[in-house]
Write a protein that binds this DNA or RNA. Sequence first.
DNA 1: TAAATAAATGCAACATTGTTTCATTTGTTT
DNA 2: AAACAAATGAAACAATGTTGCATTTATTTA
Lengths: 144, 144
Amino acid sequence: MLSKSGSVAKLLRANQLRQTPIRQRVLALFLEHREALSQHFLEQKINEADRITLYRTLRTFEEKGLLHRAIDGTDKIKFALCGELCSPEQHQHFHAHFHCDSCGRTLCLENVEAPAAPILPDLSVSSMHLVIRGKCELCGKKKA
Amino acid sequence: MLSKSGSVAKLLRANQLRQTPIRQRVLALFLEHREALSQHFLEQKINEADRITLYRTLRTFEEKGLLHRAIDGTDKIKFALCGELCSPEQHQHFHAHFHCDSCGRTLCLENVEAPAAPILPDLSVSSMHLVIRGKCELCGKKKA
DNA sequence: TAAATAAATGCAACATTGTTTCATTTGTTT
DNA sequence: AAACAAATGAAACAATGTTGCATTTATTTA
């Protein structure tokens, strides 16, 4: 994850992207929420933009290495802010995400150590993802 | 995974499912391929069935604990045969899958040990999935 | 073995999402 | 301020997800 101090404008400039209102709003939402967001979520937050623009914005950010796809076991694509280790050429090769089956939120887990790569003869590994599912702290409280 | 000896008819009977041609063909394909299959793949293999029937067949099998969703990081849902540890009530809580970014196949990894669950205060964990991406043995050879 | 019945199937229909093309608008550069 | 490249929004279409309903079929039982 990027430091909170990184302003939206800076982030765009650093990635050679134009300062458009929609891109700024999208990035601001990612910085604000600090979790993996779906296009659906962004559409609801940004009424001005139509879904095609959002669709392309997300993929542009992905190409530039600003966002990565968060694997959470659902069939809905979600994106999350990349850390410094990601770049257009090479994304960080280990990610861990927590998905709440109750509210559907997907959180990036920062401090999870990569498990030792299993021995897989004949398979070449380029990345690993740990998907953890359960109940988040908010949904856990509701029940209690 | 179930033993190869388990015949299709037995599997259906054991799960209180009727012996219909489509269900038999679907199960046979899973037994034959031994990897996670998408509905799209099944549609192409079974021309007789329309997609709605397949859609419902897969979900019925899932409910019965015969199939589970294989998480492979793509946005396409894939199913795989469950082992003995899965049941309608409780699926095995750790799965590992390998996804080939080149050909799109998804393999179930049987012998991968579950990583130690990370310490996640306030998050209750119900399952974990390890998704490994890279190139499978077939696609690796092509390049070499 | 045939009738009864509960389940599976296939069709129609519709919602959502993914994706491309193209004309228009906008941000950036000179 | 003009020129240019890039971003946007509209239209359009494909693929997938999902439900309701009428028909067919597998199983049960008389």
